[in-house]
Simulated scan of single mutants.
Amino acid sequence: MMTTTLAAWMTTLRHQLHAHPELALQEVATTALIKQTLTELNIRLVDYPGETGVVAEIGHGAPIIALRADIDALPIQEDNELSFRSTIPGRMHACGHDFHTAALLGGARLLKVHEADLNGTVRLIFQPAEEGHRGAKMMIDNGVLAGVRAIAGFHNMPNLPVGTLAMKSGPLMASNDNFDVTILGQGAHAAMSEASHDPIVTLGELISNLQTIRSRNIAPDAALVLTIAAVQAGTTFNVIPNTANLRGTIRTFNTAKRDLAKVRFYDIVRATAKMNQQTATID
């Protein structure tokens, strides 16, 4: 099999997937395309009870080695002129799961050619709902790792040179805790700010105060990041709103630091809101 032929085949699949992104646990057409492609390659499908997601196998017997890719997209509007851009408003393969899926299908095609040479079984796992952190647990609960001796998951890394594979010992992907905070204050006309409990002021203070978790509670050489990635408040220039909202994520490799960051997060949000005569809900 010529590498260029395989590359062109994978690229076509990737473009097809990219043009038709589906969100977590809604990957119905994606699942159907994966199954169709595997069937065309004469790769046996394994019964899997989930409505989305695919499991297949190449080879026979032990040991069983698993290869895993994620298949879901993100709720993001794609704004470019690519010929294969998303055809679904508000949805986009912005994290590369279309590439991951095409890459695993390409691996499946190569492995199928060499199936007679395999000493054991390769289990292919196409996981739904990586975004939102539900899909892996669902698949594990449905037994997809039964008998598996080792598993390789992978993710694109745009800052690596094309054609490079990278591995490391120890933790690679951090824990991920997302937060959604709504500050409840008291709105007023902008010219009568004394009548308000301004949630935008509190929002601004929180953007700064929450950074002290990283800078003052976590050692400088420890890995933890707290990012506020979305803020929203108000709709016009002369009205102080009743509420303000911020959203973001905390990521780390260490359980104790993860727990500490969460405790400090709640303390800082609640204390800052109370200082400004407001309340805050934390999801």
Rank of each mutant, 00 (worst) to 15 (best):
G163F: 04
A174G: 01
R149F: 00
M138Y: 09
K168I: 09
D141W: 08
D141L: 08
M139Y: 01
V148H: 09
G143Y: 03
V162C: 12
D177K: 00
G147A: 01
L160C: 03
V162L: 15
R134A: 15
A174Q: 01
H155Q: 13
A136R: 12
I140Y: 07
A146G: 11
H155Y: 12
V144W: 13
L172N: 07
K168L: 13
G143P: 14
V162T: 11
G163Q: 11
M139H: 03
N159S: 14
P171G: 01
P171S: 02
G153P: 05
L165G: 12
S175T: 10
I151F: 11
F154R: 02
L145N: 07
S175P: 07
D141V: 11
A150N: 09
D180T: 06
L160I: 06
V162F: 13
L160E: 08
M173D: 01
M167T: 15
A152Q: 08
R134G: 09
A152Y: 14
A136D: 03
T164I: 10
L172K: 03
P158T: 00
R134P: 04
A146E: 13
M173Q: 09
V162G: 05
F179W: 09
N178D: 11
M173C: 02
N178P: 08
G135F: 00
S175R: 03
N142P: 04
P161D: 11
G163T: 10
A136I: 06
G170Y: 05
I151H: 10
G153Q: 06
H155S: 11
D177H: 03
V144I: 15
M138N: 11
L165V: 14
D180P: 00
V144Q: 12
R149V: 14
G143D: 06
M173G: 01
P158L: 00
N142C: 10
M173I: 12
I151C: 15
I151Y: 10
M167N: 14
A166N: 11
P171H: 07
V148P: 10
A152E: 04
T164E: 02
M139N: 05
N156Q: 09
N176V: 10
I140F: 12
L160G: 02
A152K: 03
F179C: 10
M157V: 08
M157E: 07
G147I: 04
V162Q: 12
T164F: 04
G135V: 00
N178F: 13
G147M: 07
G135N: 02
L145D: 06
A136M: 07
S169E: 06
